[in-house]
Design a protein around this nucleic acid. Structure first.
Lengths: 229, 229
DNA sequence: CCTTTGTAGTGATTTAGATCACTAGTAAAA
DNA sequence: TTTTACTAGTGATCTAAATCACTACAAAGG
């Protein structure tokens, strides 16, 4: 039965984890599951913001591009993540593009209806405030990084952040669960692929980062943290 | 009567503007008015986040400093503004310093009690989600600016942002309501005072900005907007 | 098969903007 | 009064990092 699948998927999203059977039902009723193929766009920057998405599986890139085609990668999202964050009670447009990197199952919810449910669930409001607050802190930290740190430190801090958002502990290392190219890393912080390459190799020589057989980064968190004081 | 003053002050904050007499009372009960003298600190980065503030009058600088003493000015807040934004349901620490620039009357509310009230007022939740969403969009835009734009454009965009947050329309110009030094402007976007000086003078020659008798900037919004496409 | 288009890697060159160094003016403190 | 400590302003110098230019390799397409 289809709603059963939706319910299962919803219950795996951290935001909804602690809701009871009755509480989750109205959300099930307004939710849809959609499968997006790799390289497709969930939405483009500027389109009217009418839905919010929760990732059940797959990977989504949130990015902006300017007229010259220069790209800023805002984030790489994975299972459990919500996007966009700035969607509630604001009627505006999507602030960035959302592109599927790996075939993804997304839970799609009309934002208007979700807002109504949000208002009737104090529990859900609490969690949402927490999520938004953390997003604000994260953005402020990234802005501070860009303003106060040099490129070497920005790259170290980017890798540390990726360990938290896209990494998993494997032995004494953190393994990044996504394969990032030099250019992608560069576009996350606004530097060049050459600088990323030279810096990563510098960190490799210091034995702080290595690449496994499949090209995934393995990072020694503690060593890297010492680099930025 | 003291609570009458508090109620009046609260009603001037945009977040509470549309609340009825009965609705605002519980907020009055947990609010305090405090006067902070210029150059005092409301809080320092790292202190436990246990209160939120609404500015009734005066000016507050939110900033961060690194070990070397380099400063990042996060924002200059005025009457009607709330800080910090990332305070709800998160129990953490203040993410930056808050320093009084001009003697300020602040409404002080214990964050835990405010959270409880928030949950019982759907109206208030809606507005707060909106405020947080706008904050997120603003931070993402500033990050994008730092990543995709050169310093000249960053300065133009900073001035445009200041028109919106700290400006008032005077004839066909926007007047910045706060006197900013070159160094302060530099610390908002992470450039040097020399570069700010040279760029502002360049904009002066292009007749996009001028300084009035008291040293406040007068900005021609439309002309400046054309600079960044 | 070759061609195209992506990637990593590395030196050489260029440049935007930071930093340095200084003049000059103003305001507050000693 | 002089001193200290700000500020704005402006050339000269320096440098971090972007850009350029190239090699080499791998995967995908015709």
């Amino acid at each position: 039965m289809k709603t059963a699948v939706i319910k299962n998927h919803l219950q795996e999203v951290s935001l909804f984890k602690e809701l009871s059977e009755e509480e989750i039902q109205p959300i099930v009723d307004i939710s849809q599951i959609r499968i997006y193929p790799a390289r497709s766009f969930v939405f483009m920057q500027g389109e009217p913001l009418d839905r919010v998405f929760f990732i059940h599986s797959g990977k989504v890139k949130i990015n902006k591009t300017d007229l010259a085609g220069k790209e800023q990668i805002v984030s790489i999202l994975e299972a459990g993540d919500m996007f966009p964050h700035a969607g509630f009670f604001r009627k505006g447009n999507f602030p960035a593009h959302a592109e599927i990197l790996e075939t993804s199952e997304l839970i799609v919810i009309p934002v208007g209806q979700f807002e109504q449910i949000l208002l009737t669930y104090p529990e859900l409001c609490m969690k949402m405030f927490k999520v938004l607050g953390e997003k604000i802190v994260d953005l402020q930290n990234r802005l501070e990084e860009k303003i106060l740190r040099d490129t070497y430190e920005q790259i170290v801090m980017l890798l540390l952040r990726l360990c938290k958002s896209n990494g998993e502990k494997v032995g004494d290392r953190y393994k990044l669960t996504t394969h990032f190219t030099n250019r992608e890393l560069a576009n996350m912080i606004g530097t060049s692929r050459e600088t990323i390459n030279r810096t990563i190799n510098r960190l490799r020589k210091k034995d702080m980062i290595e690449t496994d057989e499949e090209g995934y980064f393995l990072i020694k968190l503690e060593n890297l943290e010492d680099e930025i004081i």
